[in-house]
Structure formats: C-alpha cells, structure tokens
Nucleic acid binder design. Sequence first.
DNA 1: GCAAAAGTGTTCTTGGTACACCCATGG
DNA 2: CCATGGGTGTACCAAGAACACTTTTGC
Lengths: 227, 227
Amino acid sequence: VASRDHEYLRLAVDLVILTVREERLQLLLIKRGKDPFKGQDALPGGFLRADENVEQAAGRELQEETQLNATGLHLEVAGVYSAPDRDPRGRIVSVAFLALAPDLPVPTGGSDAQAARWEPVESAIGKLAFDHDRIATDAVERARGHLEHTTLATAFLPEMFTIPELRRIYEVVWGTTVDPRNFNRKIANTEGFIEPVGQRRFQPAGRPAALYRRGPATDLIPPMLRS
Amino acid sequence: VASRDHEYLRLAVDLVILTVREERLQLLLIKRGKDPFKGQDALPGGFLRADENVEQAAGRELQEETQLNATGLHLEVAGVYSAPDRDPRGRIVSVAFLALAPDLPVPTGGSDAQAARWEPVESAIGKLAFDHDRIATDAVERARGHLEHTTLATAFLPEMFTIPELRRIYEVVWGTTVDPRNFNRKIANTEGFIEPVGQRRFQPAGRPAALYRRGPATDLIPPMLRS
DNA sequence: GCAAAAGTGTTCTTGGTACACCCATGG
DNA sequence: CCATGGGTGTACCAAGAACACTTTTGC
C-alpha cells in the first residue's frame, strides 16, 4: 500500500441519494455486509476502478448496491473527505456525490450490501458508519441551497407533476411553508422551469391540478429564497 | 501501483489561485521543472502525503511552490478530475482547489517549480499542461459565481480597502461595469459586509475614500446579480 | 349546496436602476 | 476656480409578501 510518503491510496465514492417520500426528506442507506462496521448503516459507495472516472464509479455503485438506475439521475460531486484516519482499513479518500431522486420503489439489497432502504434524514444522520454522518449533513445542506438557485427541485418528482407537488418538495426539503398563491406565479414567470403537458390530475377532493414536465432551464433567476 | 482492478492510485492537489492585479483577473502559474510537460506552464500542485488531508496538502504546496502563505487565504475544493488517462505518469486523480488572494508580491520559484508568476486568465488558459485548462476554466467560473452570493470579493483586497476598490474587483472579475452610486448603498445596506475603520485614503486627485475592513458576514443576501 | 383543493387578482412594500447633485481634495 | 473622483438623494419600476376571492372537482 505505502510507497514514499504513503502516497498511494484507494479512492472511494460515497453516495448521498435523497428523495421526498411520505412528506419527508429521506436518505438512501445500506446495511453493511462486511467489517468494519458490519451490520451498521452507511451510505452506499465503493472503490474507484482502473478504467473509470469518479462519476462512472458513482453510477456503477448506485446500480450495484441499490438496483437504482443512474441514467437520468443528477449526480454531482459534493465534497472530498480525506482525513488520514477516516477509514480503519487504511488510507482511503472519499469523493462524496449528491443525487436527487424521485420517489422510486424501495430498493433491494445488492452485491456488497445486505439491504438498501430509505430513511428520513433526521433519524438517519447520527448513527452512520465511518464519517458518513458528516458527509450526509454537508450534502443535505448543499441540496437545500440548490433549490434556491436552480430548478433541481423537479429532480425529486416523476416525469409529470403538478405545481402543488413541486411546492411540497420545497416545503419538505426546507422544513418551511411556502405560500401556494405566490409560488404559482413565481414558477409560471420563470421561463423554462416547467412546461404544461395539457392534462390534469384528478384527486379524491378538490379541483384537479394541471400537469407539467421539466423545462430546459437549470438556473433559477431571480432565486427563490427561504423565508 | 496496481492491485486488483488498479484500485491503488495517487492523489494530487492542483491550485487555482486568483488575484486582481493591474485591473485584470490573474492566475498563478508555475513553469514545470520536470517531465512530463517540462518547461510548460501549469497550475501549482503536488501529491497528497500520508499524514495530511487534501486541505493541508493544498496549503503546503502553495507555500512550497510559490512562497505564498496559505494562512488567512480562503481555500476550497473546486472539483475532482479523475479521467483515467489525464496524467501520462499513471493513475493520478486530482482535487482542484480555488483560492482568492490579494495582490501579493510576485512569487518566486520554489521546490518543484522553476518559476511562479501571475498571468491574466484570458492569456493563461489555453496553453496549460495536463487538463489544467479545464480545471482553471471551471474554477474561474466558480469564483465569478461566488461574488454574487457571498462576500468573498474582499478576499482579493488587503486588510484595509475602499469601496471603489471593492467595486473594481466586481468589474474586473465579471468584465462588466457597476454603477458606483448604487454599489455604495448596496454594500452599506448589507449588514456585516464591511466595517468602517475611521480613516481615509488620499489619492493624486479627487476626494479621499473612506477605509473599511472585512465584516463578519459571509453570505450576500439579497445577492448581487451580474447585469 | 358544501367541502376541498387549485388557481387568480390586488395591494403593499422592498429593493434594484437610473441619474441629478453635492462633497472633498490637489493644483 | 477647476478637474477629479467619492459619496448622497430622489424618482421610478420590477418583483416579493400578504391575503381576499374565484374556479373546479366529489359527494
């Protein structure tokens, strides 16, 4: 492992996959199948291979450990964690990725993991293996900021969605309330955020909501600030 | 070097150090003293050592290669570059750092580097070694965005500065003009951005400008948008 | 008709933009 | 007094906040 100055090391990717499910912000966790931390909850992840970059490694690990398909999922680097003693197995530096996913079917366990499941962020953070509590905390805060300045909130929703559903994403992720009347006009006035699909969604009660899909815009100008 | 799946590798840090100098945004470059790319311009940087994290490695390399002191300099991770063939010496993944520095004395060459110097970003980018053109381009855009949402513009200035000097930072980094009258009130109304020091700076002509120092605020709310 | 939820209009206020004007210095 | 640049005041307008009201469904 070591050479001059211990400069050879292994590079891991760890994934913070968030979704909004049952009106709560939830985090994808696996139960570790091996030591160290066997049986404890952790972020999905794994080691970089010789023929891939970190983005490809993140997509592959997501598929292997959770059966989720990474195509179409927004995956971005959220941080680098490199404390020399962060992993008892030796010198391992981790590149953390953040992804926002729609409310997908509960994932099943894959190769290295005994089981994968969604858990609300408040109860998940505080009991994770390695330095994953810190990684998850940082990534969640990054996701909250993204909603202010980008159109990424739609990544939490399926292909077609209503404006009230989009608003609830903001409320759940931020833990605040958002005025439905003002939200509607804000979204409608932002060119390219959403595009009408010409259908409506019927519900148990109340007026049906119009359906939309994602538009081409990525930045939200002016930003939507948390109150 | 290689083990199963070539999973052992070396981790480098590369530094994008920006300053505003002679009314232009400039980038700190070194001329490479060794192959590969010997004699070509590149970003300062080097390998992670066994007993340090990437932030410490970035500060150490900055000191070694450019004699600049990293204490007090804002250093942040700006990206991870991990294409398998990005370095002809083998599998090397690089963590890019961004730093904003005041107009410091021209640095002298250090250990690995034959010479270090400032060069305007427009002429520097396009001729750098490795994938450093890409790294520098990404980091410069990140710095431009920081000025909109944070108070980091003051990092380009010495401890005491005037409001017109701060305004020129925005103009130079963004390549736009900013109305001096409106800029003054915008800054003054942002609690904690700057604090008056009670002195004035005399100049060849015109009314002396009041001196300020950085305040405790880090975020700029509401943001200062580029026109 | 009534409850429930979607969606519109209206007012108020805040903050950005544009620009006229005044202030403080050196020569 | 004039040139030069720093700094203030004011009028206008766009966008956010608060909230009354209308629309469209199921029962």
